[in-house]
């Protein structure tokens, strides 16, 4: 393998890892605030990609502009979903039943997309789709860079929000110790709703980024949910930095393994990492008290 090919893979791995990190952060938020494994996360991702595609097809505008309405919309849907659906479940069986509930949401989204748009593969035609440039001999498409930029900005925004705002503080407190958070006067129910909204907002941004340079089809979400879940287990359930680091590491690993193994077999890397983690270190590599119990 040549040096430039390796470099290319490294760069692509980082770009992919950025998107994974954003999406895994969303998945971690749901789990953190409510101990919910949100299977529908990647279905919302694909839904956002479809909305971006549909928007750009109907208006002829840049798909990035669809973010203006998909992000608030998804945030709202997240809050409503938590309030109307998830919070109805009995606490004793919450983890299991929420999986089924979000799974059924994923099925409804996939089925609706398939019904409305058919199973055909779709792709956005961008004027700058072919544009690419060279960095140290690695050939990087502009769209990939935009997608990464989008993910990086969103992730940085999420970090600032969690670290420096009152809502972020409430969210972190709820993730770490819900009972203690309640004792100091945090309305954990409401915070959980916002956590859900934020999680879905990451799916909106991720989906738009995905739509820029990927072919999309309704059942695509299954290709995303597996790696994403592997990432949050490896990172330690409930740990956002852990998820981000694991996302980068696994994204890079996948990208590098593609050279000798090809795309299909490289995907198994995620699952091997998942099994290895559960065998050797079940609470994940950055997990805390939370992860030990789940």
């Amino acid at each position: 393998m040549t040096g430039s090919l390796l470099l290319q893979s490294l760069v692509l791995g980082v770009l992919l890892g950025g998107l994974y990190a954003l999406l895994a952060a969303g998945l971690t938020l749901y789990f953190g605030v409510m101990r919910v494994v949100m299977i529908a996360h990647s279905a919302f991702l694909i839904l956002a990609a479809y909305l971006a595609w549909y928007f750009s097809q109907q208006t002829g505008l840049d798909p990035l502009l669809s973010l203006v309405f998909t992000v608030p919309l998804f945030f709202g849907v997240g809050v409503v979903m938590q309030r109307l659906l998830i919070s109805r479940l009995r606490p004793a069986t919450l983890t299991m039943m929420s999986v089924l509930l979000t799974f059924s949401v994923a099925l409804v989204i996939e089925g609706t997309l398939g019904f409305l748009f058919g199973g055909t593969h779709r792709r956005i035609q961008l004027p700058y789709a072919g544009t690419s440039f060279e960095i140290f001999g690695a050939n990087i498409a502009l769209v990939k860079l935009i997608a990464f930029g989008l993910a990086a900005i969103a992730l940085a925004g999420l970090y600032v929000l969690l670290k420096f705002t009152p809502l972020g503080q409430a969210l972190r407190a709820t993730i770490q110790h819900p009972e203690a958070a309640q004792l100091v006067g945090i309305n954990t129910d409401r915070v959980a709703g916002y956590g859900f909204g934020l999680g879905l907002a990451t799916a909106a941004i991720g989906g738009t980024a995905l739509a820029l340079d990927s072919t999309i089809y309704p059942s695509l979400h299954w290709h995303w949910i597996g790696p994403l879940m592997a990432i949050i287990v490896v990172g330690g359930l409930g740990s956002i930095p852990g998820a981000a680091i694991a996302a980068m590491a696994l994204g890079l690993g996948q990208s590098l393994l593609q050279i000798p193994l090809g795309t299909t077999w490289a995907q198994t890397f995620f699952y091997l990492a998942l099994f290895a983690t559960l065998m050797l270190h079940p609470q994940g590599f950055f997990g805390d008290r939370l992860a030990q119990r789940f």
């Binding site: 983890t95 287990v233 789940f294």
Partner: peptide
Amino acid sequence: VRGASFVIV
């Protein structure tokens, strides 16, 4: 570990 990992696996 508890349920979540089981579902994910």
